[in-house]
């Protein structure tokens, strides 16, 4: 007869039966003579860490879709060791594409697992609104090293991200690593709205001498056109579960076709932003835009609601 007396993987032992009873008493620290009426081997407080990890991993996995990953945060609040496990289980947003521990600092901030990403503070000016974007939440001063940029959001915005070539989304295309982001704004016309639709893009390119055509043309993002949903009787965008609250701020941006010829790369959502709860939004971005660019574009929708114009 063979006996298996186990508590955790690290202590797994397989023994011959002759020795097993005595040994298992030692290992388990429990008297096996009362086996039968009381199988109290299960001391839950000493749950093997691999099992705990497994359960918490399932909590994490099950919240791959938003609404906000509350349960992950709640589990981290149980005790210190759970928080550590949760931190391990939650992957960095670059890997998982999820941002979990959001810290509502100043105007907007993004963080993963307590790891803070970017913050912005809103500065109202008479004619426009500035957002100071910083790598640090508690230091928004402009002279500081952590200051990385500013977004100025007038009613209409002209935002040129000329470091990204339109060809970057083609196979083999590249986007340069950006050291700064030139965001210029023109308050009055003539202006090229940043979030332009395909139709007025064409108008502009036909009627006006739009600079930078050809190989060096800039990547232009446009709103993804919503579909009419018959059952809901409204215009819908598919956010794949990442956005749960209807809001004018929700948007998806795709690359605008350079010459009006749309390829499959123009269906790919490059940036999406949307509401999941009171004052909580998700942001998903991908190549070729950077975190800073994505964040700045999303911030702009707070002020101008330009995405819905």
């Amino acid at each position: 007869m063979i006996k298996l007396g186990l508590k955790s993987r690290s202590r797994r032992v397989v023994q011959d039966s002759s020795m097993a009873v005595e040994k298992s008493k030692n290992i388990m620290g429990k008297n096996k003579s009362d086996v039968g009426d009381n199988c109290s081997y299960c001391c839950w407080a000493n749950l093997p860490s691999e099992l705990l990890r497994e359960v918490l991993l399932k909590v994490e996995e099950s919240e791959s879709k938003w609404p906000a990953r509350k349960h992950v945060v709640a589990c981290a609040g149980v005790c210190k060791s759970w928080r550590e496990v949760m931190k391990e289980v939650v992957k960095t947003p670059e890997v998982s594409g999820k941002i979990t521990f959001l810290y509502p600092l100043s105007r907007s901030a993004l963080a993963d697992d307590g790891k803070f990403l970017l913050a912005a503070r809103k500065c109202r000016r008479p004619t426009c609104t500035d957002y100071i974007i910083s790598l640090q939440a508690d230091d928004m001063s402009k002279g500081n090293d952590t200051y990385i940029g500013k977004l100025r959001g007038p009613r209409r915005m002209h935002c040129v991200m000329d470091a990204i070539k339109a060809s970057s989304i083609k196979p083999g295309g590249v986007a340069p690593t950006q050291t700064y982001l030139p965001i210029t704004c023109v308050d009055s016309s003539p202006t090229i709205p940043f979030f332009r639709t395909k139709s007025n893009y064409l108008d502009k390119s036909l009627s006006g001498p739009l600079s930078n055509q050809g190989d060096n043309s800039s990547l232009v993002l446009r709103n993804k056109s919503p579909r009419w949903h018959e059952q809901l009787q409204c215009w819908c965008l598919n956010f794949h579960g990442r956005v749960t609250v209807a809001s004018v701020k929700n948007f998806q941006l795709v690359a605008s076709p350079e010459n009006g010829v749309a390829g499959p790369e123009h269906d790919k959502v490059i940036l999406q932003f949307g509401k999941v709860g009171k004052d909580v939004f998700t942001m998903d971005y991908r190549y070729p835009i950077s975190a800073f660019q994505a964040f700045a574009i999303c911030l702009s929708s707070f002020d101008t609601k330009i995405a819905c114009e």
Partner: peptide, 16 residues
């Protein structure tokens, strides 16, 4: 693993 190592057809699980 047990079955590979032993011919024994009776396995006692002391903690289930």
């Amino acid at each position: 693993k047990i079955l590979e190592e032993k011919e024994d057809r009776l396995i006692h699980l002391s903690d289930i």
